[in-house]
Amino acid sequence: MQDEPRPDELIKAVADFLRDHIAPQITGHAAFKLRVGINALDLVTRQLTLAGHSDADELARLKELLGADGSLRELNTILSERIASGAMDLSTPGLRDHLWQTTLAKLAVDQPNYASYRRELGQK
Rank of each mutant, 00 (worst) to 15 (best):
Y114Q: 15
T45F: 02
A40D: 09
D57E: 15
V109G: 01
D3H: 05
V14L: 11
D97V: 10
P7Y: 10
Q101N: 11
N113C: 07
S71R: 03
L90I: 02
I22M: 09
D20E: 07
A15F: 04
R19A: 11
G67I: 02
L90G: 02
A60S: 07
H21F: 07
G52H: 09
Q2P: 10
T27S: 02
Q123N: 13
S85Q: 01
N113R: 14
Y114D: 12
A23W: 02
L50A: 12
E74S: 11
E81T: 13
L59W: 13
A31S: 07
A115N: 12
E64W: 05
L104R: 10
T102W: 03
R73D: 09
D42P: 01
R96D: 12
A87F: 06
E74I: 07
Y117D: 02
A23Y: 01
G67K: 00
V109D: 05
A15G: 08
D20Y: 05
S71M: 04
R6H: 14
E74V: 11
R46T: 00
Q111Y: 14
G94T: 00
T45D: 05
F32K: 11
L99M: 00
L48R: 12
D16F: 00
A105N: 04
D3E: 10
L95G: 08
L18S: 09
G122M: 04
E9L: 10
D8W: 14
D110Y: 09
T27L: 03
L34F: 04
L75R: 11
G122C: 05
L62W: 06
A84T: 01
P112L: 04
P112K: 04
H29G: 03
G37M: 11
D8V: 12
V44W: 08
P112T: 05
D97C: 07
T77Y: 12
G28V: 03
L79A: 09
A60E: 02
I78D: 05
P24G: 00
Y114G: 10
L18C: 01
G67C: 01
Q2A: 13
A87H: 11
R46F: 05
R73M: 10
D89P: 01
